[in-house]
């Protein structure tokens, strides 16, 4: 019956189909309007500003009044001709990949540990305490890191010195800089990152665990055969979303920790754009690099999504 109706519906002209759909689902479409307006005004309309990447921008003349740049790829060329670019791109990808790794697997392991904790009260306390750092700003985290890792006054170095060792310049050395960035990212994001996994774990049918217990499965077998497959989709979705930000590397985070001493291991695309583009009024350069980043990020998201279809866990 329903198939016949669907067939009749599909034979209607497009305009009629749209009209019928709107009439039938109007409350839902009404609720959709604010969302559409939001995205149109704040996300899509500003994209017109991307034209700045191809203009010799003059503040007084505005975006549309400024002349086109010749050649049109001048600012892209400027970025790629900068002798610093290789190092910047390498740092960005390195920090991002590490952040992606520590942002996903430790949180997953932590979520598994919390969900397996038999004492629920204790698990809740651990969970709450673990996601508190998420609410600290990077400036505060830098303060904490300095108090812990500073050569002169850091707790860690005090202990090392008392044990007869040499103080380690964690914050001032190219050797350790990326490690510190990854470590602080892990500390700040571990608990918060676990929330999504915990929510997914809670959604797994408990009868599966009961059946597995009856069949003689231990805790690890249950995690391997029930929990991990149960949260596979959410894991892939998070992975796809994170891949989209792989060229970001976290401007606020890196900028706060960056000094001249660690610039060769810490300068990333965004910090370079900030000083070169915004600090020196070169908005066209900043836009060109931003546009390039967006195109690459979108490509990466599409590629990851296509790849994840193999595991039937793609977003679309």
């Amino acid at each position: 019956m329903s198939t016949t109706r669907d067939l009749a519906y599909s034979r209607l002209p497009l305009g009629e189909r749209i009209k019928r759909t709107l009439l039938r689902w109007w409350p839902l479409y009404l609720m959709l309007i604010p969302g559409i307006v939001f995205f149109a005004v704040y996300k899509y309309a500003p994209m017109g500003g991307l034209v700045l990447a191809f203009k010799n921008f003059k503040i007084k003349k505005g975006i549309w009044g400024s002349p086109w740049v010749d050649p049109w790829y001048k600012y892209f060329q400027q970025f790629f001709k900068s002798p610093a670019n290789r190092n910047i791109i390498a740092n960005t990808i390195s920090i991002s990949l590490w952040k992606l790794f520590v942002g996903m697997f430790p949180s997953l392991i932590f979520a598994l540990a919390v969900s397996e904790c038999r004492k629920r009260g204790f698990a809740r306390i651990v969970q709450t305490v673990s996601y508190l750092p998420h609410f600290l700003s990077w400036v505060v985290v830098y303060g904490v890191a300095t108090a812990m890792l500073s050569v002169n006054r850091g707790v860690v170095n005090d202990v090392i010195k008392k044990l007869g060792g040499q103080a380690i310049p964690f914050l001032n050395s190219n050797e350790y800089f990326q490690g510190v960035i990854i470590g602080t990212d892990l500390w700040k994001g571990l608990g918060w990152g676990a929330i999504t996994y915990l929510a997914a774990i809670m959604g797994i049918d408990t009868s599966l665990y009961e059946a597995a217990t009856v069949d003689g499965c231990g805790r690890f077998r249950q995690i391997w055969h029930i929990t991990l497959p149960g949260i596979r989709k959410i894991f892939v979705v998070l992975l796809i979303l994170k891949v989209g930000t792989i060229l970001d590397a976290g401007f606020n985070h890196v900028y706060v920790f960056l000094t001249d001493e660690v610039r060769s291991s810490g300068e990333i695309i965004d910090t370079w754009v900030y000083t070169q583009g915004i600090g020196k009024s070169n908005y066209s350069l900043a836009t060109a690099v931003g546009l390039m980043k967006s195109v690459l990020s979108t490509t990466l998201v599409l590629a990851t999504n296509a790849l994840s279809r193999k595991w039937e866990a793609s977003i679309w």
Partner: peptide, 8 residues
Amino acid sequence: VDAEVFTG
């Protein structure tokens, strides 16, 4: 020399 002389 102060090991953190470049910090600020």
